[in-house]
Write a protein that binds this DNA or RNA. Structure first.
Lengths: 336, 336
DNA sequence: TCGGGTAGTGTTAGCGCTCACATCGGGCAC
DNA sequence: GTGCCCGATGTGAGCGCTAACACTACCCGA
């Protein structure tokens, strides 16, 4: 059914060399005369030859494909990360195969990883923001290049992560600097490391200022849970500043405050996290923290490629990307 | 470096059969005695054997991978579609390889498709919502199973699409039913078929009601452009109903209306499109149109699998998925 | 009794590539 | 001139699998 394109031997014949020389040219081996190299390239172009990745993968034991394991790629963060990863990988000549999982539990993660292994991927990136993923990771074959994104900071696995703590600290500090006596926090789901880091940063900023952190409100990233938390916060006159673990939570909070007639930022200031594209068009425009997904993607891929090229090794590498505060209109000094 | 797992011959040896019988069991061939089949399965389980996809791809000429070409997988629509596609594909035993492209022009699309072809994917799904993509698709090798999602309705290529026209008509009609004399429309970028379909549906609903459509406002899907259009609409006292081509445009519009002190829905009603998860938490909660991405994904994959199994064929199949109106609080009768 | 189907199984030959090694010419030191 | 090394290239094997065919029982009807 498929018209199989030309193979390496066809190119070799046309260029008047052996297939092995063609292979050498393709893989950038040094010991090929410049003239030969050019002739081979010309033949490749003339035939429209493309190397067969499957054959290469068969003999080398790995393909030019990177497997990505992620949950819920509909969320803004994961989606952005995935897109950035794909871009970066493409520049390096790698394809990206997604294996999204419904739950980040042991079995799901292992299954997704195994699926990638069956295709003999060159390496795996696990976007594993929750506790349960960590365990699965430690049981994985040790000989597969692997990088974790936003994973457990306490596990001995190569890890690239947004500096959640620094971002949260900056957000909280920004509110304190505006003159607020304390800052309330609506967090993400408790099993996400992102949540934990943001809670830690928030708490650290308060403690550093000698403030006893107020009770924590637990959300789940959704606007809906932000709304529920917002309804409680709106009824508490002492609340003047809220830091939410992401922008969608902030949206829910803003809506609840609006319904209760609490004006933002006149009465209450709000800061989010993520800087989703539409955050600038919330009512009011949301001050938030922007993680650099491109940088995260670049760093992870770099780390993975190092492992691939050097034959694993590296051990527990670790890289942290600092996010930036984006000031908009949702923060103002408290009324006296 | 990698400890290569057991191969088919290892399984065969353990089960006391030939490797070919193992292959037959794996591929569900009929002529294998039940008892043999069980023995082979046991051996597979015992060794933890996984078939090598690369070897299979090499000999069959195609892998169990489906290539997806998409632009900007950060947008809610494409991201949801991609996720749904991946889920569905996984259920059918296929992996999904993403090839995102920066622009949906000729060259980019062709390049992405070629990259997939190099990996000998079993089929390709192109999320190709713009004009320029269509041309590229017609030049593609005819022997590769291919399905377009949200592509050009007028091209002879297998296509699955959300019924933009019906959705837009429903949204517009909903506003007319509420008593509005006319409905304004903020559209998406003019080269997207999605935009075109939504414009068509909006116009059709108005014409059917004997209303001359008011001038069209052009946006680009972003909240930012919605905001700019909203600023103009807010200043026009005769505007009482707005249908935006997506929810983020609606968010921008809502913000502009809010700034100009025009109350929604008391003075102006707004309807969006997409039903992003946070639409229910806009101020006010947004009435919108929900496309069924899962259904689109299922339909596309089904169409692709049919082609793969039957050796292309099919020709210009076509399937349309009807979206549903989700009524919330952003629509009310006009004031008199 | 024998030819001829028909399950169930084994054998062989590649798919297109890379790896390890063999080969073949110079250039250079002695 | 002889021996040696090294750069440039070719040769052969084999990665793990499937497709095509070969083979062996065994059962059937004539």
């Amino acid at each position: 059914m498929a018209v199989h394109g030309p193979a390496m031997t066809d190119v070799a014949r046309l260029a008047g060399v052996s297939h092995q020389t063609v292979s050498r040219v393709l893989n950038g081996h040094p010991n090929v005369r410049e003239q030969t190299r050019l002739r081979v390239r010309a033949a490749i172009a003339e035939l429209g030859y493309r190397p067969n990745g499957a054959a290469r993968a068969l003999v080398t034991g790995r393909s030019q494909v990177i497997g990505v394991v992620a949950q819920n790629t509909t969320l803004y963060g994961p989606a952005s990360l995935l897109a950035a990863l794909e871009q970066t990988a493409a520049e390096e000549g790698f394809a990206v195969s997604v294996g999204s999982v419904r739950n980040l539990d042991h079995r799901s993660i292992s299954a997704a990883v195994e699926r990638h292994l069956a295709h003999r991927v060159a390496g795996i990136v696990v976007i594993a923001p929750v506790e349960s993923a960590g365990e699965a990771l430690e049981r994985l074959p040790k000989d597969v290049p692997l990088v974790t994104v936003d994973g457990d900071p306490h596990r001995p696995v190569p890890l690239v992560t947004v500096d959640q703590v620094a971002g949260a600290r900056a957000a909280t500090q920004h509110l304190l600097d505006a003159g607020h006596r304390t800052v309330w926090h609506v967090s993400g789901p408790s099993d996400w490391f992102d949540s934990a880091g943001r809670i830690e940063g928030w708490r650290a900023a308060l403690l550093a200022a000698g403030i006893d952190p107020p009770p924590l409100m637990h959300g789940d990233w959704s606007a809906s849970s932000g709304y529920r938390c917002g309804q409680m916060l709106a009824r508490m006159p002492e609340v003047t500043a809220i830091f939410t673990a992401n922008d969608h939570l902030a949206l829910g909070v803003l809506r609840a405050l609006h319904e209760f007639g609490r004006r933002v930022p006149a009465e209450i200031s709000v800061v989010g996290f993520d800087d989703v594209p539409e955050a600038a068009y919330f009512i009011p425009p949301l001050t938030t923290v922007r993680p650099d997904f491109d940088a995260v993607a670049r760093a992870s891929l770099q780390m993975l490629l190092t492992q691939i090229e050097s034959g694993i090794g590296g051990g527990a590498l670790r890289q942290t990307i600092a996010p930036a505060l984006v000031a908009r209109d949702s923060v103002a000094p408290p009324r006296h």
